[in-house]
C-alpha cells in the first residue's frame, strides 16, 4: 500500500498537462500523476487540490471515470486558491488528495429514465455521470440533460453539449436566464425544462447539481412532475478542510458534506434546505 493510500491527509503530486479556458472565469485542468500510476474515481467524487504555499480547495472531478490515466477538474476562479489554480501553467505540480465523497448512484439507476438537471458550473460535477451513462446507454430508458446557464456566453462545455445533442439516444435541452435576439434557443429558468417533462416520473432517477437555490427549485419541479424524493439526488457544497469527516468544517445538520455527501438523496436532506441557520 502506498503512503498516499495509508494517509488520507498526504497529497500526491500531479503535474498539469493541459489547461483549457472554458469561460471567462472558468477553466479545465488535466492532471497526470507526477510519480506515475493511475487514478480511479467514481462520478460525483471530489479531490482536495493543493497549490503549494497557497492552500487547498475541494474541487469535483469533471472527467470520465472510465479514464484512469489523467485527472480532469473544471473550476471557477473566484478565490485565492482557485485563482492560484487558474494561474498554473503546463508542467506545474500540485498536490492532490482524494477521491473523496459519495458518488452519483449511476448503476442504481439502471433500467430507469435518467435525468440530469444542471445549473451553471454545476454541469462539471455531473459530467462524469453523463459519461458513465453514455458508456452504459443501453442500460437506461431515456437519458436527458437539462441545463441552465446565465447567458449564451456562459454555457459550459458548449461544444460537448452540441455533440450530446447530436446523438439520437439522448435528449439535451439548454436554457439561459437572459439573452439577446442573437440567441435562438430557450430563455427561462431551468425548472421550465423540468416542467416540460418527457420522462416517466414514476421510473426516473434525477441527478441535480448547481447553486443550492437552483437545486431546491429543481427538486421541487421534479417532485411536481411526480418524481419521488427518494429518486432525486443533489450534490451539496459546504466549506471543507480535511475532506474526510474529521475537522467538522463541512457539517450540515447531522451530516458531514465531505463524507456523507457531496451527493445526497433528496429525501434525506430536503428538510435541511429550509433551515436558514445551516
Amino acid at each position: 500500500m502506498s503512503a498516499h493510500a495509508k494517509d488520507p491527509m498526504l497529497p500526491r503530486p500531479f503535474r498539469v498537462e493541459k489547461v483549457k479556458r472554458e469561460l471567462s472565469d472558468t477553466f479545465t485542468m488535466e492532471l497526470v500523476p507526477a510519480e506515475g500510476g493511475g487514478f480511479s474515481f467514481a462520478a460525483g467524487q471530489f479531490n482536495m487540490l493543493y497549490v503549494f504555499g497557497i492552500g487547498e480547495v475541494p474541487i469535483s472531478i469533471s472527467g470520465d471515470p472510465g479514464e484512469h490515466e489523467r485527472l480532469v477538474h473544471t473550476t471557477r476562479a473566484v478565490g485565492k486558491v482557485s485563482g492560484a489554480l487558474d494561474a498554473l501553467k503546463v508542467g506545474d505540480v500540485i498536490g492532490v488528495r482524494g477521491p473523496y465523497g459519495i458518488p452519483w448512484p449511476v448503476e442504481a439507476a439502471f433500467g430507469r429514465d435518467l435525468v440530469f438537471v444542471a445549473g451553471g458550473v454545476g454541469l462539471a460535477p455531473l459530467r462524469p455521470a453523463i459519461y458513465q451513462a453514455m458508456a452504459n446507454r443501453e442500460r437506461f430508458g431515456k437519458v436527458m440533460v437539462l441545463y441552465g446557464a446565465r447567458t449564451p456566453e456562459d454555457i459550459l462545455f458548449k461544444k460537448e453539449i452540441e455533440r450530446w445533442r447530436g446523438r439520437f439516444d439522448m435528449d439535451v435541452a439548454v436554457t439561459v436566464d437572459r439573452a439577446t435576439g442573437k440567441w435562438g434557443g430557450n430563455v427561462g429558468v431551468v425548472t421550465n425544462l423540468v416542467a416540460k417533462g418527457g420522462f416517466d416520473p414514476q421510473n426516473t432517477t434525477a441527478f441535480v447539481c448547481g447553486p443550492e437555490v437552483m437545486m431546491r427549485y429543481a427538486a421541487q419541479a421534479l417532485e411536481k412532475k411526480g418524481v419521488g424524493r427518494g429518486s432525486i439526488f443533489v450534490s451539496m457544497e459546504r466549506n471543507m478542510k480535511c475532506g474526510v469527516g474529521l475537522c467538522g468544517h463541512c457539517q450540515w445538520g447531522t451530516h458531514f458534506v465531505c463524507k456523507d455527501g457531496p451527493v445526497f438523496r433528496y429525501d434525506s436532506i430536503a428538510d435541511l434546505f429550509s433551515i436558514r441557520e445551516l
Binding site: 473566484v78 446565465r150 436566464d177 447553486p211 437552483m214
Partner: peptide, 22 residues
Amino acid sequence: MQLLDLYGVDAEGGKKKKKGKG
C-alpha cells in the same frame, strides 16, 4: 428566479465552495 441571477459569482459566493465554484 431570473432576478436572483443564480449562476452569477455573487449569488454563488459567500462561502468557500467545492465543485469548482469556490
